[in-house]
Simulated scan of single mutants.
Amino acid sequence: MAIFSLFLFSSQPSLFVTLMSILNFLSLTTNGYMELNGKHAKYAKFFDDPSKNSKSVENHQIQSRNGMLVFYTPSFIVGLVALSILPRHDLRFNMLAYVLTIHFFKRILEVLFVHKFSGFMMVDVAITIGVSYCVSTATMIYAQYLSQGLPSPVVDLRYVGIAMFLIGISGNLYHHYILSSLRKEGDREYKIPKGGLFDLIICPHYFFEVVEFIGVSCISQTMFSVCFTLGTIFLLLGRSRGTREWYVSKFGSSFRSDIKAIIPYLF
């Protein structure tokens, strides 16, 4: 445990944060394991063609664009509220609240102006993911709020975290732009993406999201942020593997076998 004290705040006197750290990590890793085994979240390319669904199922679908807004908007509001009403006398707390708010604001802008949508998702999936993001964001901010006044970790990673966050969010945006350029609005045909790190991995947007959230953990240096980031890594490993398998099944020999899922040359 001594090694953790070098990099993390001492445990806050909060049973809620401790339980949420455990539950968040278990939930994300379980979802990652399910993705590895082909049980994908029902949205984007893994959602069945709505024309093949029954009328009762169609009544519980919303357009993917609206579903994505349900994903991100509550967490963005949580960030704004935290910046507006919580007393903050700590630079680290300010940095965390700002980067989380910027992260979800960027996601909303991408949904509105970058991504191309042509499909649907289930309403319950959109709400479940939106609530999960919102609760995780609020808990991370709350854990940071409780850490104010505690002795800082011996190794200060705040500025390393800011650098990683900026690299991650920029790389994620760039590769989302490449993906959006593949299809015109309303076009349902998928294509193999090229350019940037797509020549090495099929999910560079996930790779940079991992970099981004490692940066968030370095800024925060709380146990909850580390558990969330580790869980997110496992989730995106599973989702990227599932995405690669989808491209292989979709394009067959046209998909280069040397393109990995999320880690160049390795995975």
Rank of each mutant, 00 (worst) to 15 (best):
L173I: 08
V154P: 00
D156P: 03
S225D: 11
D156K: 14
G38N: 03
S51A: 10
Y177E: 11
R239M: 11
P204D: 08
G168T: 05
F224D: 02
F120D: 02
V111S: 11
R241L: 12
Y133K: 01
E212M: 12
Q63H: 14
I178E: 07
G231S: 04
L15I: 13
I178D: 05
L266F: 15
S54Y: 09
F76C: 10
I127F: 14
Q148C: 12
G32E: 03
S118E: 06
Y133W: 08
L80A: 02
Y174L: 13
S225M: 14
G67P: 04
F105L: 15
E35H: 14
L19K: 02
D90A: 08
K194Y: 09
H89C: 09
S51D: 14
I85S: 09
R65G: 02
D156R: 13
W246P: 01
S147M: 11
M122V: 01
C203V: 05
Y174H: 14
L173P: 02
F198Q: 01
S249D: 14
S257M: 02
N37V: 04
A41N: 10
V155N: 08
S181R: 15
I259L: 03
V125S: 08
L23D: 05
V211L: 12
D199C: 01
K191C: 10
M140Y: 01
E212V: 02
M68I: 03
A44Y: 12
I162T: 12
M34I: 00
S51C: 05
F7G: 02
G231F: 02
L173T: 15
P153N: 07
V155I: 15
A41D: 05
T128K: 11
I22C: 10
T18D: 14
F228T: 04
I262W: 06
M1S: 14
A163S: 12
I201A: 01
G32I: 01
S217R: 00
S132Q: 08
H60A: 08
S249V: 00
T232W: 02
M1I: 09
H103P: 07
I22P: 03
L157C: 10
H89V: 10
N53A: 12
S220D: 04
N94W: 04
R92D: 02
V226G: 07
F47T: 10
Q144V: 05
S14E: 04
F93H: 09
S21V: 03
H115V: 05
G119I: 07
D124I: 10
S64P: 03
L96F: 07
A97C: 14
G168N: 06
R107T: 05
S10H: 11
L150H: 13
V99K: 04
G242K: 05
V135N: 02
F208W: 05
L166R: 00
M20P: 03
K45V: 11
Y247N: 04
A2P: 09
V81P: 01
N66S: 11
T139P: 01
L235C: 06
H176C: 10
F71Q: 00
L23K: 05
S253A: 10
L6D: 13
Y133A: 01
G171W: 04
K52I: 02
F16M: 12
L112Q: 08
I167V: 15
V160A: 14
